[in-house]
Amino acid sequence: MKSTIKFPRFDAELDTDCCDPYNNAELTLTLRLGFTQINPAGGAAAGSHHDYGNAAKPTRKTIKWTDAAWKTWKDNFCSTAQSFWTGKFWLVNDAGSFPFVTKSGQGYIPNVWCRMKIVAQDGSAANNHHSISVVRLDPSESWFGSHSTLYDSKDTDLVQKNTDSAGNKVMQRAHVHEVGHLLGLGHVDIGKAHCPASGDTNASACYGVADNDMKSVMGSGMELRLEHAEPWREAIRGFSIGEVLTGVLAPGKLFLPFGRLLIGANPLFAVWPAKFKRHYPRTAEEVAAGTLITAKPARPA
């Protein structure tokens, strides 16, 4: 079964059709991004644009987008950001949700593989989750002041963002960091004393002070952390609780949610711990025992 929940930031689709003794359910978050070209004024081949789109800021030389350059840039943006975020996390099903029974009569509880898809659309499309305008920098320019809705053609490049305590460069591709924001993730040090959640969470200290923090993709680096699975966890809780509500409305399915209490699982209090490693579907007994299966198990056909 495939079901969809539309969140403000993305659409989430849960696919349980792919579940079998070895394959988990798949949860795909889809971001529809509306891209709009920003070209030099008056149809000119070359011009300039102010940093941040703010007339008080320095100008950078820009050139007109060609159809080929525009397509190449969008394709590169989507493919590289998507490959960075998709398929990296598994959520361990401690809710007992989405149980299925194989032809042999063996029941399993799947975990959830976290996937992500970026769909590039025209900026004028009505169903965009986010809109992004893009300037094409002249080749002589190395930097442009971007922000969350105004990008430049070099924002997909890997560039230095910070320096660790040993003097090493901390590198990042800006667009993968921004896609993290589009999924709902905040900066790495939000909530710490030097970056209170009540303050400006865009302050430089919020990008990480300790080396390990600044290397996070939600700091100044490119490293994924388990906490970055939070958008998928948020979405799966929606599906899990929705499944319970469906069971309440359809008494014939009630045994499913109530049956979970027997294995110590409860969708309302489930944590859905995130893992970087594939965890195979489990039987109810394995769930009850807290067994985690990371090597391919022998299962009846």
Partner: peptide
């Protein structure tokens, strides 16, 4: 100042 990327000193 360790955040050595960006547009530099404006």
């Amino acid at each position: 100042y360790r955040q050595r990327g960006g547009g530099g000193i404006s």
